[in-house]
Amino acid sequence: MRIARIRKETTVTEQVPIDLSLMDPLIEKYKGKKGNMIPLLQGTQELYGYIPREAFHKLADGTGLKLSDMYGVATFYAQFRLNPVGKHIIKICHGTACHVQNANELSEALEEALKIKDGETTEDGLFTLESVACLGCCSLAPVMMIGDNTSGKLTGPQAVKIVKNIRIAENN
C-alpha cells in the first residue's frame, strides 16, 4: 500500500540552510504549464537530492499548485524522497531474476556492513541503502547500482567490498 511511503517527520539534527533561489529557473520553466507538477518535483529533487519542506512552500507560492496535491503526488511515487539522502545511493535490485539469484544476500550483507536498514542512511551521510524493483539488467543478476555504476553477478562479500572501496576513496 502506497500510504506506507508517508514517513513520519524525522528530527533533523543538523539544519543545513537550503538555497531556495536555485529553484527559480525551474519554476520559470514550468510555471502555468499543464501537467507540470511531476516535472517540478523531479527538478527540485534533482537540485537537493530530496524535496525539502521549504521547497514545497516555494513551489506553492511560485506556481499556485496546492500543497496538499503536491504532497499527495510526492508520497505516491517511489522516486520522491522527503528526507535527505546519503552522498551515494546504493540500489539493490530485487526484481524477479535477482530474487531467484539471491539478491537478499546482498541486502543482508550490506545492512550488516553499513549497520543500516533498507531505506536508511549511514551516520556519516555517505550511503543510503535502497531496494528497487528492477534495474533491467536481469541477465547480470543479482545487480547493485551505485550512482551510474552497475555491478552484476555479485555475492554479499563482493558487494560489501565495492562499498568499502568507495568509503576508503571518500576518506582520503
Binding site: G95, T96, A133, G136, C137, C138
Partner: peptide, 11 residues
C-alpha cells in the same frame, strides 16, 4: 514504463 520486475525487452 516497463515496471514488470524481470523484464527488459522495452529497455
Amino acid at each position: 514504463d516497463e515496471g514488470d520486475p524481470g523484464a527488459f525487452m522495452d529497455r
